[in-house]
Write a protein that binds this DNA or RNA. Structure first.
Lengths: 208, 208
DNA sequence: AGCGCTATCTACAGAAGTGTCAATAGGGAG
DNA sequence: CTCCCTATTGACACTTCTGTAGATAGCGCT
């Protein structure tokens, strides 16, 4: 009858990782407000007090999840940019790769959740400015002679616009395509990205 | 002692409106998942069963709130566009007005909440295409001679980009300004809008 | 004034979620 | 093999939230 249930005993670190993974997925899917200990426990295959044992409280689990998610994001973006730099990729390809990362890994959704619920304020440390400075340096380098150098803020705003576009496409892409009469055509998304990349590149590197 | 509490008795319609208003505000502030009957009841100044009396269940209240919020949004956008058309406003001014509406009234946040939580799918009926068609007609009209007519999709994508930018600015504006080293400068937001408007207008009406 | 409709209230039931506790058992160390 | 540490569990306490039920009290109508 009631067979004694065989316990799987992980190391503390393995357990934390398994729990964090399930929690991040939950965060991506339904936001921080709907993170339930029982549900995550079920996904991992443990009982919910186990989670409390490793994280102390739901609140602290949430903190850890947010940190984990942001670290994954920064890590992946760093990797994408490193690859791009190493392979001398074109601006179009870089933009494409970043969009791909944000969209398919669900990072865009997570950022939106955190931003809306005000959970992750000021965890960023000026990354946008760093990126913009790199782009601006490239831009000045490739500047044809006799053309007035653009202001830094122009480059910065261009980067901000690119960010908004990528995020917006990840969040509202499907809905807007529906609303545009494009149906569910997934190719429309890549067409938009290509179009956007051309627009931005023409703005930043008018010579090419 | 316990003074009999004087009840305020509203008409059913007034009560519904008061409840909806409080609920929409809650939706804007913290999203659909955190809509609590007791809290809304407190805001309105009634007991929570009163809400259930008027709406039947939390679920139906939520439906009504979503519908109300989207109707407000469509109404306000329609008004803005009507004004713009009547006053022959410039494209820059139109964009500015729409951004203002989306941002200050909190519509952008609401849309983002609904989109993330998958509550409001397909409530739109092709409005994006309508807008894009109007813009495209204007664009062809103002076209200088001897220039090849742009594809409709180019105009459509431009409108989509504008939408993403406005939404993104409303959602992530503060965070990105922080990350850009611009601090809390609220003027930076208007500078960005101006910059964006110029970019889009130059794309759509290169002659001016 | 008296009556009836119904918006509103208080009190309570039930579900679900977080957190506590003592007991259990897996696995490494000696 | 035995012991000890601690990851894990089932049971339970407590809170919060939705929904129900019966009583009550405004307000229009006659």
């Amino acid at each position: 009858m009631a067979q004694a249930k065989r316990r799987i005993r992980r190391t503390a670190e393995e357990a934390r990782q398994a729990i964090l993974a399930a929690a991040v997925e939950q965060l991506r899917a339904s936001g921080p407000a709907s993170i339930r200990l029982a549900e995550i426990a079920r996904d991992v295959g443990v009982s919910h007090p186990a989670i409390l044992h490793h994280f102390g409280s739901r609140e602290e689990l949430l903190k850890a999840v947010v940190q984990e998610a942001l670290e994954r994001l920064h890590g992946e973006l760093f990797e994408v940019l490193s690859h791009a730099e190493a392979s001398e990729a074109s601006s179009v390809e870089i933009l494409d790769a970043m969009a791909e990362t944000l969209e398919t890994a669900g990072h865009a959704r997570i950022i939106a959740w955190l931003s809306l619920s005000g959970v992750a304020d000021a965890m960023d440390r000026g990354r946008m400015r760093q990126v913009a400075e790199v782009v601006h340096a490239r831009r000045l380098e490739a500047l044809p002679h006799g053309i007035k150098a653009p202001h830094f803020e122009d480059t910065l705003f261009t980067c901000v616009l690119a960010t908004h576009a990528i995020m917006g496409e990840a969040l509202l892409g499907r809905a807007l395509r529906q609303s545009s009469g494009l149906g569910d055509d997934p190719a429309a998304s890549t067409r938009f990205r290509r179009w956007l990349a051309r627009l931005l590149v023409e703005k930043l590197e008018p010579g090419e």
